[in-house]
Amino acid sequence: VPQTPIRAAMNSIQQLRVELTSASDQPSHNLQVYFKNCTVDPSEEITKRVEELGQVFSQKFAQAVGQRSEGLGRKRFNLGAQLYYKVMESMLKSEEKRLSVQNFSKLLNNATFHTSLLACAMEVVMATYVGNSLKNGAFGRGSGASDSVETDLCFPWILGVFQLHAFDFYKVIESFIKAEPTLKHDMMKHLEHCEHLIMENLAWRADSPLFDLLKQSCEEGAGEQAEPPAT
């Protein structure tokens, strides 16, 4: 059977579904143990955040694609939530091994971390649906309304939906790729493309937290001896 752009996208969606077959859109037992080990249990906040972001995502999806598509948006969000919990568990296992600690209270109570991780999972789901052939222009952006709408839902659309700074999204990308070894070559390249877009453009917009951090870094370093220019 010849490989068409639609068939390629459908195969990618099928693969994603298979990989998430055993995953749940609720925290696994292992994750719940990590939550209970925290000084401040983050369970309620995490569940509440996922519910709220799920509603926001479904509404924005419906606004972009059509009001009758809210159910479709909800299905995609549930896939993203499954991936979010799966990757979170994998990340915590790696951190436990690396740091020899089991209490991740500070990280797991950091709202920006969770929103960034969920946004990255959603980006993987959305990019899978759009399909790599479509993204690479095989259909052309002007060939049909639905094609261009789907393409418009790709990065950085999710940042606006979750009201997330590109700089914070950037921070999860590498750890996400390390924690999810089943990610396909094309998806890794897509996330790398997002990374470049942030580095070259999005992180330097006027409202970016990067400027405050640079200022803070300059102030902290003011009393220290300046490093040689080459460094």
């Binding site: 990280l107 950091n110 999860v172």
Partner: peptide, 21 residues
């Protein structure tokens, strides 16, 4: 994973990036 350029050092992880211990 050979397809991606990893920039983090081995001693760095997600905890450090979100300013955690």
């Amino acid at each position: 994973s050979q397809d991606y350029h990893f920039g983090l050092e081995e001693h760095e992880g997600i905890s450090e990036l979100f300013d955690c211990d």
